[in-house]
Amino acid sequence: MASAPFEYLAPSTFAEAIEALGEYGDAAVILAGGQSLVPMLNLRLVQPGIVIDINGVPNDGPVANGGWLTLPALTRHAEILSDPLVAVAAPMLVDAVHHVGNVRVRNRGTVGGSLAHADPTSEIGAAALCLGGEVVLTAASGSRTVPVDDLFVSYLTTSIAPGELLTELRLPALNGRSGVSFVEMVRRTSDFAIVAVAALVELEADASTVKRASVALSGVSDRPRLADSSLTDELIGQELPYARLRSLGAEIAARFEPPDDVHASASYRLRLIEVLTARALQQAMDRARS
C-alpha cells in the first residue's frame, strides 16, 4: 500500500517547526523517528495534509546539569544505549530502551517521538514516569514544563496543545543509594510489551532503609501509568519480604482495568502486574543495597 499524498517541510530549527505547526494546524503531523508514524502513513491510517520533519533540527545530545539529565527530543534510542552520560544518570532508561523494537527502530526512533506518540505499551513512557521526568513543551509564545504523568492523557493522546512541540525530556538525577529495575513480559522479544514495570527504590543514608519508591507500568491501561503512591509508600522505612512485594503487586494490579487484546486477556495482565511489580521492586532494592 502507498501513503496518500502529503506536503512536506523540513525545518532546521524547532522555532521554524513550531511556526509551521501554527500555520498548518490540524493538517500537520510531526515526523521524528518515524517508526510509528510512517507505518500508519503506509497503511493509509493517517492521511495528513503536511508532514513536518524535525530530523534536520540540530541535536546536541544529552546534557547533565543541576541535578537533571536533559535529553533533546531527537535523542535516538541507539544514542541512549551508547551515551556514557545516560548510562550513569539514567540507567533505567537504558534498561527500558533495550526492550524497544529492533536495531532499525532504535537507530531511528527518538525519545521525543516515543513520548509524543503516547503508546500505552511504551517502555520509555514507563521509565520516564517512574523516574519523575518532565517534558518541555515549546510553543511560539514560550515553553512550559509538564510532568510526564500529565503528558499522557489516553490512548495515543497527550496534553500537547495545538502549536506546541515536545522539545526535551528531563529526568532528575538519582541519589547514589538508589536502585532501578525494568522488567517486561512480551510474547516475542522486541515487540509491544504485554506488561512492563519500571521500579525505583532510593535508600536513606544508612544504605538500607527505603526512603522513596516508585513504580510505573505500561500495557496496563490506555496510557503508561504510575502506580498509586499511597501503595508504593508502604515500602518506605520497611523491610518487605518478596511475599509482601507480591501482595503489594496485587494491590497495585487491583487499581487497574487493563486492556484485553489478541495477545493477552485483562485478567492475565493483572496476574503479570502482580508478579512483575514484585520482581522489579525486589531487583531495584537488591541493586540499591549492593
Binding site: R187, R188, T189, D191, D261, V262
Partner: peptide, 16 residues
C-alpha cells in the same frame, strides 16, 4: 480478523 498486522502475528524471531 484481528491479526492483520505483522507486528501482531508472531512468527519466531532469531532470539527467542
Amino acid at each position: 480478523n484481528n491479526s492483520t498486522l505483522f507486528t501482531n502475528y508472531l512468527i519466531p524471531n532469531a532470539s527467542d
